[in-house]
């Protein structure tokens, strides 16, 4: 485990939306921390506000109450860079120009931008596709570009919003291994939202379980499965025990969320 210095501090954060004249509480007094270099996974049933929390961290959505602090120890680098669900690449930019988008906006010179793009594309294995447009790539390749774009921006904290959810099972497995490799190489602090407990157990140092709407922190679990971790971890007894333990809790939340959906307004 790297240093225990807190990197992300979320203190009593609430988010309330106005929807059809009624206020809906999406997040209810969430408090959590991510340490420097930690891979923190956030898991919860649909509607638990996982993505909302990530958007608050990214500064894309103001919280209604509470505060968020991200410790910046390198001036000039952005606080966060987000890897979006279904990639969200800019379709009019080539792969390389998507990767350098953040650097360009920060006024980094062309030579340095291109060097950084080459480095990141090599890391995600897309060197040959630098001049392609997103529509010429497969889903898995697009998401690799999304990851390279975030890494190229060299943020203090990497935010990932279900980045692999839209991929097929095999591609997802490959990408999980890639992510582990990249994270081990760069040692970034990662806040990773997923609805897959298996994914969280494979990737995370800790797992924060959120409750059904309104999202609250239900439990925080340490994933003591050792590092480096690979797919074989899924065969270990400790994995099974932890999966069972977290699932029994998550299951309750999922059932509660479903009941609420049925009891609430029809969609």
């Amino acid at each position: 485990m790297p240093t225990r210095a807190p990197k992300v501090l979320v203190n009593e954060v609430s988010v309330t939306f106005e929807s059809h004249g009624r206020s809906v509480v999406a997040l209810d007094r969430i408090s959590l921390q991510a340490h420097a270099g930690e891979f923190l996974c956030i898991v919860g049933p649909s509607g638990s506000g996982k993505s909302t929390l990530l958007r608050v961290l990214a500064g894309l959505l103001p919280q209604s109450a509470g505060d968020v602090r991200i410790e910046a120890d390198r001036p000039g680098t952005p606080l966060t860079a987000m890897v979006f669900q279904e990639h969200a690449l800019l379709p009019w930019r080539t792969v390389r120009d998507n990767v350098t988008f953040g650097l360009e906006n920060r006024g980094v010179g062309r030579a340095e931008r291109e060097a950084r793009a080459r480095e990141m594309l090599a890391m995600v294995g897309l060197t040959r596709f630098a001049q392609h447009y997103p529509h010429q790539l497969s889903g898995g390749m697009k998401q690799r570009v999304g990851i390279a774009r975030a890494l190229a921006n060299d943020p203090e904290v990497l935010l990932m919003d279900e980045p692999l959810a839209a991929l097929d099972a095999q591609t997802r497995t490959i990408m999980q291994e890639e992510l582990l490799r990249i994270w081990a190489t760069l040692g970034k602090t990662v806040v990773y939202v997923t609805h897959s407990l298996e994914e969280a157990l494979l990737l995370g140092d800790r797992i924060v379980l959120l409750t059904a709407r309104p999202g609250r922190v239900s439990q925080v679990y340490s994933v003591d499965l050792g590092r480096p971790r690979g797919l074989e971890v899924r065969g270990s007894p400790a994995y099974g025990v932890l999966l069972e333990k977290i699932w029994s809790q998550l299951r309750e939340e999922v059932v509660r969320a479903m009941a609420e959906d049925r009891g609430g307004e029809p969609a």
Partner: peptide
């Protein structure tokens, strides 16, 4: 989401429009 990408990656105001 492309607007979110723009804002998260530092394109604001006129930059967000042009880029």
């Amino acid at each position: 989401r492309l607007l979110e990408v723009g804002r998260n990656y530092g394109a604001r105001g006129a930059r967000l429009f042009w880029k």
